[in-house]
Nucleic acid binder design. Structure first.
Lengths: 98, 98
DNA sequence: GATATTGTTCGATCAAAATCGAATTAAACC
DNA sequence: GGTTTAATTCGATTTTGATCGAACAATATC
């Protein structure tokens, strides 16, 4: 499968990031990824429908919060912490502390 | 007119605050209030309909971002910076820098 | 009291986003 | 090739939120 294209860090907007975070499921995903280097979609699934989660992963990717690395059949997600820190200093630290 | 009741700082949630910020008009209001001690609704109005702005002020109040002080016929709005800093350290600094 | 000013509330409409089952893609493995 | 596993895409539905005119409330001023 082809790789996803992730937005460049320069093109990230604060509003976009805030929109990405403004959902309970996505905030939970982000906070979970703050404490682990990466996690497969399955590992983040819980008992929710896969198609719903796929939607949230897409939103998180498009807002620049998440990077998805494809390895075989698995998709490994990680926080784009370095990019976010560079672009919005202090933001993720505050989010992950919450 | 009776005062508004603002949520106690202990009852603020990160998700609630993020939802409050996840709108272009509200983010603009918040960022503007970051650089000024307080501002009346009229001062923040721009050329938008009053009823739309009233809605956004309400959302901002309910999420704990904004405090509204009533003086005569005017409503003076201010950022609840101290409460937000106490509850979510570093968050507003990152938002206001953006 | 009449009028102007400031801002809210109501209610209807519109737009955006979440939800999720079913079908699909893609890799891995036998 | 057939099957299992991981995750997405499609499409329909539902839910949530934004928008904004009209009516209203409250204060100030003449």
């Amino acid at each position: 499968m082809a790789d996803y294209d992730h937005p460049a860090s320069e093109s990230l907007t604060l509003l976009g990031v805030l929109r990405g975070l403004a959902d309970p499921i996505r905030l939970e995903i982000v906070q979970h990824l703050g404490s682990v280097p990466e996690a497969s979609c399955a590992a983040l699934l819980g008992d929710r429908p896969r198609s719903s989660m796929s939607h949230h992963f897409q939103v998180l990717r498009e807002s620049g919060l998440l990077h998805t690395r494809i390895q075989g059949v698995q998709h490994f997600n990680s926080l784009r912490k370095a990019d976010l820190d560079e672009r919005f200093p202090g933001l993720m630290e505050a989010i992950l502390a919450g």
